[in-house]
Simulated scan of single mutants.
Amino acid sequence: MFASVALGLISGILFAAYPLIDLEVARLFFDDRAAKFPLAITYEWNLVRRVANWIPFVLLAPALFVLLRKIVYPGSAMLIAPSVVVFLLASFVVGPGLTSNLLLKENWGRPRPNHVQQFAGAADFQPWWRPSGACTRNCSFVSGEASQAFWAVAPAMLAPPQVRPVAMGAAVVFGASVGAMRVVFGRHFVSDIVFAGLITIAIVMGFYRLLLDPLRRNDARLERAVERTSVALHKATGAALAGLGAALAHAGGSLRHTGQHLHKRIACL
């Protein structure tokens, strides 16, 4: 976690001091004659992109299934250790979900490469540290898809110790590869990818220390908490359905009374 923060500081200073790095790298993949990023419209590379985007969700699916099963059947034992389930789900929701896609992309204002003047767009180029660009939503900083891909570090950290470094290295390469595609497509700058990776990995490591550190880990207590939450959800759902049923019954009674009244009036005509 501290290594990610240190790398983040170094990267922030580097891209702030030399913001043209982003433009020069993006220029490598821009066709001046066609005024576009040509690989962005190729079927094959977009297919690779779609497949890559599904991989994090496939990795997350077992944890989500276990949690939903526990919610539906609160008394059943969780099929995966509760700390692992919460670690995977929480790091994904907070990392790629809230931090990258909701907090940063929707508020930072940095235009994408294919929207700036240097690449046939209309917006002014903005360095990563200036969040006041022309973009109003789904902006360039940071890359949501790269953030999702770098999240693969989370399941990699659960690999057996003897293969964990290889698994984590493969996850970082996967994240960098997905991020590279976004740069080649002209949809993100290099700094968008770098910060997406550093922020996501820092969040993953933070949750790992919080939930899976041997000194803090307590699966029994965590499963009881999940079970209590599930029971509370059942009670709240039951109360809501009972209230809805009562409201529908009242509405039905009112409609029946109104219908009988109309029938009497029509009979008197």
Rank of each mutant, 00 (worst) to 15 (best):
A63V: 14
A63Y: 14
L64Q: 13
F65Y: 14
L67P: 14
R69W: 14
K70Q: 14
I71Y: 13
I71H: 10
V72N: 11
V72M: 12
Y73T: 14
P74N: 11
P74I: 14
G75W: 11
S76T: 15
S76M: 14
A77G: 14
M78D: 12
M78C: 12
M78Q: 11
I80T: 11
A81S: 14
S83P: 08
V84Y: 01
V86S: 03
L89S: 04
A90Y: 04
A90C: 05
S91V: 06
F92P: 05
V93E: 01
V93M: 10
V93L: 15
V93T: 10
L98H: 03
S100I: 15
N101D: 15
N101G: 13
L102P: 02
L103F: 15
L103P: 02
L104K: 08
K105S: 10
E106A: 06
E106S: 09
G109W: 03
R110M: 05
R110H: 02
P113M: 05
P113R: 00
N114K: 12
H115F: 11
Q117G: 13
Q118A: 15
F119I: 02
F119Y: 06
G121R: 06
A122C: 06
A123N: 10
A123F: 11
D124L: 13
D124C: 03
F125N: 03
R130A: 10
R130C: 01
R130Y: 06
P131S: 01
P131Y: 00
G133D: 00
C135V: 00
T136G: 10
R137K: 12
N138F: 07
C139S: 04
S140K: 00
F141W: 07
S143V: 01
G144Y: 07
G144S: 09
A146Y: 05
A146E: 05
S147P: 09
S147N: 05
Q148G: 13
Q148L: 12
A149K: 07
A149W: 07
A149L: 05
W151A: 02
A152N: 04
A152H: 01
V153A: 11
V153T: 13
V153P: 02
A154C: 06
A156L: 01
A156V: 02
M157P: 01
A159E: 01
P160C: 01
Q162C: 04
V163R: 11
R164V: 01
P165G: 09
V166A: 13
V166C: 03
M168C: 12
M168N: 00
G169E: 03
G169K: 04
A170R: 01
V172H: 01
V173N: 04
F174L: 05
F174Q: 09
G175S: 08
V178K: 04
V178N: 02
G179M: 08
A180D: 06
A180K: 09
R182D: 06
V183Y: 08
V183D: 03
V183G: 05
F185N: 10
G186W: 02
G186I: 04
F189Y: 14
F189R: 02
V190T: 14
V190G: 09
S191M: 08
D192P: 10
I193H: 06
I193L: 09
I193T: 09
F195W: 07
I199Y: 08
I199S: 06
T200D: 10
I201N: 05
I201C: 10
A202R: 05
A202H: 11
V204H: 01
V204W: 00
M205N: 08
G206M: 02
F207N: 00
Y208N: 11
Y208Q: 12
Y208K: 12
R209M: 13
R209D: 13
L211D: 01
